[in-house]
Design a protein around this nucleic acid. Sequence first.
DNA 1: TCTGGGGTCCTAGGACCC
DNA 2: TCTGGGGTCCTAGGACCC
Length: 426
Amino acid sequence: MSSTLYTKKIALIDCNSFYVSCERLFNPKIRRLPVVVLSNNDGCIISRSNEAKALGIKMGEPYFKARNIIIKNNVQVFSSNYSLYGDISRRVMRTLKRFNSKIEVYSIDEAFLDLSNFSDKEVKDVGKEIRNTVLQWTGIPTSIGIAETKTLSKVANHIAKKQKSGVVSLVNIKDLDPILEKVEVRDIWGVGKQLSKFYIKNGIYNAKQLKNASNTWIKKTKNVLSSRTAMELRGVPCIEIETKQTKRKSCCVSRSFGQKVEKPRELKESVTSYCLNAAEKIRSESLVCKSITVFIRTSPFQNKGIFYSNSKTIDFPIATNNSIEIVKNALIGLDLIYKDGFKYQKAGIILSGLSDSEKGNSLFKSTKDERIKNLMQSIDSTNYRYGRSTISLASAGINKKWSMRRQYSSKIDTADFYSLPKIMAN
DNA sequence: TCTGGGGTCCTAGGACCC
DNA sequence: TCTGGGGTCCTAGGACCC
């Protein structure tokens, strides 16, 4: 150790109530009102402003259960608008990259940033500068936690969320125990419902206790991931920042229906359009898939009537990203699992065994493959230019009665000129 | 009436082999 | 009746994350 001034330092930058903040960007009138954003199909509450949290509206709560509070308190409700959130997210991440290229975009609203190149003394001020810059350039408020491991930076972030400054650094604090003691075990990154139940049963209630628990015991009774969490609480980095994006291994498209579906034709339509969607996605990442899984299910929440859920996986002889072939096989699978007389609530498909489309398989390349590739390319570029599903397959349906509810959409699309919001000067 | 969607990784257990 | 030991590979399901 040559110097204690330049220890390893990781910042976790987390956008505050991200989806709500995005909606507020284009709608100044709701900046001081309680706001919630709903999940797909307007099912659950997935983002809440502080005002909404204060009203006791819980994360993940079904919308209909919170409706009374919402109406009574004039809570502003929005359907989710992922193309908008994705766009704002990219702007935030671009801003963060200016501070260090060693960045891991962890989710749509979170990133780990390596700040080891700054001295221990200045790192908190750097955090403040990052926060101010993001706010100024994108309008999105963030919370920033800085520490020597990813797990500790999550802890720091957890604390930062409750502080006005929004920035907390645990770097170079000799004794973290008084801080860790106040962090409940279920609030630790990597400790979910099952694990916290297990830990509590064994007398571990907070982060300090988990930090002091025996590593061999954790590894033996649970697994290596759980022991890594404990190590990281001790300040030993076990989880690296993943700067280069690894190609994904699967691609899933699934939706709940806007209304229950009984007709096989409508199930086929939905599965077809999910396939088109997924196939386009993997083509845009130059990937091919080895197999497709199709699944359908009835609602698990209604105990009247019997619950039915089934899936079927079909392998492709040669890895593919051909929409037509993917749809064809999905419909074969669907046929095998479809049962008459059920009210279906959800369907979906998963493309798995994804790999690079350029690598391998040259053995089976033919002029037919070339033609298909060209066809897919022109479909993608047309849909890109004129909007998704300009070119589709007949089996995807026209009316789409099954499609999801989005009753409260703000209809802001930063990629579409005509739905840009009009902002009046005053 | 109304309960999201999209990922990753790990483990246990079965099939199969020598 | 007694019924080895060790290895690989695959899959389903569980747990976790946001």
